[in-house]
Design a binder for these strands. Structure first.
Length: 425
RNA sequence: GGCCCCGUGGUCAAGCGGUUAAGACAUCGCCCUUUCACGGCGGUAACAGGAGUUCGAUUCUCCUCGGGGUCACCA
């Protein structure tokens, strides 16, 4: 899913398990044999040591410490084993792990591109396990070896690693390796205290796509979470994003994901679509709504400025497919100066007028209706409100009476108008 | 609990010792109008709290409070 998502938004990578590259293998299980020699090198340098303490023993001690309200820290017991004893136990095939030998005092630190200098006291650090009893490296260790052997220069990752990075850097120092540039980033949050998480049921990229959001809008919105370009620009294509990006604009504090603003931005993207692009994106939703698509020009005109996500389309146009069962009270509207009595008179004039029209072109329908209003000295609204209600059977519609008439076509329009007149009888 | 990090309106987010504390979303009002939108104009709304430092703190320091992260033979 991650590959799919990255590809669909146009993100590319130079190497990886899927496309290969010069620094492979890229799958952990295919690399397992390369870590032990590095750990042994550390042992030789006195920066690591063999440990024969069992897991059971350790977890018992950990529990005890927890009971006393203390933080458990390995006491370096096995560091003090004599070389001879270590060799003897190794030869005897006793299970062992290799632990990092963290100095008893001093400071471990690094400089993060966003957070600056991060330092922790070595005395607070535990001698973490580098190689497990099964010979596999722990993530902590593999992470360092992999980054170095793969020639990684910049590490961008979640800031949950902020506190443990100084400890990893002790390893770089022990090997005498150059450290990468670290850029720790805040997570995107659901609310003030929970991060956004697909696992916890939060909607993710593909969910939004399925809800009718445009991928460009999602990328644009998310890019602005935890980063700002240094000016007031808000709309970016991927290329513009690449050009404008700088670590300087990244924020130290987490940002809460606001669907509201995403939705607004999506609406902006929709409005900027060409009519052709809009129609192409909207078509599946037209079909879902079961509406006639012979006038996509009119559909686009009324929907494009109104819709915030494509998924809203079926509900908004449902009345086109089928006239809802509506109440005559809908014909009442104070501002348009209309009520059932007025509506009856209006429909009595409009129906024969529309029946007599030579064609059903927009200009023809429009002019006929407007001229009638002018002739009778009626407000446009007074004439058009009843027509729209009879055509749509709904108080709120996208577009006005004329547009709806065009979408419905002559026969259906007249049928609905007459049905409306019936209701008013 | 120890250690690390963070803290400007409801949300995103400028600000980097002196500002009427930007802008955007949301919200409210007005205008436009053929309903609803779109669009235009305007309003409400913030420096978590307390001590310092300084002529002057949103900005620097410390403490408190709040939130997050991390303390595995998981990654």
């Amino acid at each position: 899913m991650i590959y799919r998502t990255l590809k669909s938004i146009g993100m590319q990578w130079d190497e990886g398990p899927d496309i290969g590259g010069d620094y492979g293998p890229y799958v952990q299980s295919e690399r397992k044999s390369m870590y032990l020699p590095y750990a042994q090198e550390l042992v030789k340098k006195g920066k690591a040591y063999y440990c024969f303490c069992t897991e059971e023993e350790l977890s018992a001690r950990r529990e005890e410490a927890a009971k006393r309200g203390e933080t458990f820290k390995y006491d370096k017991h096995c560091l003090h084993l004599s070389p001879e004893e270590v060799q003897r136990r190794l030869d005897a095939g006793e299970p062992y792990v290799i632990r990092q030998n963290v100095p008893e005092s001093g400071e471990a630190s690094f400089d993060d591109a966003i957070y600056g200098h991060i330092a922790v006291d070595c005395s607070d650090l535990d001698d973490m396990i580098l190689i497990k009893a099964d010979g596999m490296p722990t993530y902590n260790f593999a992470n360092v070896i992999d980054d170095h052997t793969m020639g990684i220069t910049h590490v961008m990752r979640g800031n949950e690693y902020l506190a443990s990075t100084p400890k990893y850097n002790l390893l770089y120092d022990a090997f005498g390796w150059e450290k990468p540039t670290y850029i720790h980033m805040t997570p995107i949050m659901r609310d003030a205290s929970h991060k956004l998480s697909k696992r916890d049921g939060d909607a993710y990229f593909e969910d939004y796509i399925n809800k009718g959001y445009l991928k460009e809008a999602i990328v644009n919105y998310v890019a602005l979470l935890g980063w700002n370009p240094g000016d007031d620009r808000e709309f970016f294509t991927m290329d513009e994003l690449i050009g404008a990006f700088s670590v300087d604009g990244m924020s130290k504090s987490p940002a809460i994901f606001d669907v509201n603003k995403l939705t607004w931005m999506n609406a902006e993207y929709i409005r900027r679509l060409t009519p052709e692009a809009f129609t192409a994106q909207a078509m599946p939703y037209y079909e879902k709504a079961g509406i006639d698509t012979s006038r996509t020009d009119v559909l686009c005109r009324i929907l494009q400025p109104r819709v915030e996500t494509f998924a809203q389309i079926p509900e908004i146009v449902d009345f086109l497919a089928q006239l809802p069962d509506y109440d005559v009270e809908l014909f009442t509207n104070k501002k348009s100066k209309t009520n059932p009595d007025v509506a009856r008179e209006v429909l009595d004039m409009v129906i024969p007028l529309l029946e007599s029209l030579p064609d059903w072109e927009e200009a023809t329908v429009h002019d006929a209706l407007m001229n009638l209003a002018a002739e009778k000295g009626l407000k446009n609204g007074t004439l058009l409100w009843p027509v729209r209600i009879a055509l749509a059977g709904k108080q709120v519609t996208p577009g006005g009476a004329i547009e709806i008439a065009l979408l419905l076509g002559r026969a259906e329009s007249l049928k609905r108008l007459k049905a409306g007149r019936e209701k008013l009888a």
